[in-house]
Nucleic acid binder design. Structure first.
Lengths: 175, 175
DNA sequence: CTGCACATGTAAACGGTTACATGATTGA
DNA sequence: TCAATCATGTAACCGTTTACATGTGCAG
């Protein structure tokens, strides 16, 4: 049972616990957004498609309060999710605009190239701060995954910052 | 002058030296594909659009041999490219399906989660090999950028492999 | 009673991949 | 003469973002 790209995040988020589209948007913005974002324009139609295919189903109606549709995963959904996670192949290419800028930075004057690397460094520092801020949230889930991926993100940020420093040194000492 | 996402790689590749669509595909597949790929379906229409906007122009017709259209960058093109590179903001989100799988791996049985990390490790080792293989090509350009980004990719791969090892250790020792 | 967060959706426009189609040139 | 590689392109389909549209419930 093939899942669409964003269908996978959504199904995963529903697999963790029953969630509405709004819930999913919120939790994605606080976790996977660093490597996989999702917009409402994707979430709501995709929830309907997943429900039509029997991979998720509406949970019990809310007791009073706001109108909302919370979905829970079905057995078929769990199977489809596991099938995707277990498959070692990746369907999607990585895309990193920051690296593309760095790749071409040498076409500019040296001062400009330095500014490009400095901007990249700033972004990585910001990202590290953002990851540190969501740390407690990830630590709260006892499940393996969020915390490990957070460690990954922090390590990557550290590496990237060091790389920027080293690259700046090289760029500056070439006289 | 706003550039489209893939217009940027294409313009950058033409900025380095005059190139045809076919050339661009080949060089992208040997360099930026690790963080920004491009297909013919994007390249040829985009070359036309860039030419219509005066950012590139057809080079002199080939002296005999094969028919082909090689483009060279114009002053306006150089300005648009520099404008994009200098702008510190990124228009595009990172997307990494491998991390998404790892994020949700804890929903599976422990053996399955271990297999997911092992698959990720294998991918990172393969990527490192691929980067090492294109190393000489990147070193051949004296321009700053390709080599620096290659160093980045290699460092990232090393880090990712170490992270997988550490994560596997953690997953296995939790009895 | 006002503004904010909750909550769900649609339509248009854009971006990107894949499959298909075509044909020339070169080297074995 | 055959296969590989050079070379360019289009059309259909799918995915994604953005902007718009609508309405509820709660706290101050």
């Amino acid at each position: 049972m093939e899942l669409s790209p964003t269908g996978r995040v959504i199904l995963g988020m529903v697999a963790v616990e029953p969630r509405s589209g709004y819930d999913i948007k919120r939790v994605v913005d606080n976790s996977t957004r660093f490597f996989w974002a999702a917009s409402y324009g994707q979430i709501y139609p995709e929830l309907k498609r997943l429900a039509e295919r029997g991979l998720i189903e509406p949970d019990a109606e809310p007791e009073g309060g706001r109108r909302r549709t919370r979905y829970r995963i079905t057995d078929a959904g769990r199977a489809a999710l596991a099938e995707w996670i277990r498959n070692p192949d990746l369907a999607h290419e990585l895309r990193d605009e920051g690296l593309l800028k760095l790749f071409f930075a040498g076409l500019l004057e040296r001062e400009d190239a330095i500014a490009v690397v400095e901007a990249a460094r700033r972004r990585h520092v910001e990202k590290r701060e953002a990851l540190l801020a969501i740390g407690p949230r990830a630590a709260a889930t006892e499940r393996f995954g969020p915390l490990a991926v957070l460690r990954y993100g922090l390590g990557m940020s550290e590496f990237a910052i060091d790389w920027c420093d080293e690259t700046l040194k090289q760029l500056k000492e070439t006289d």
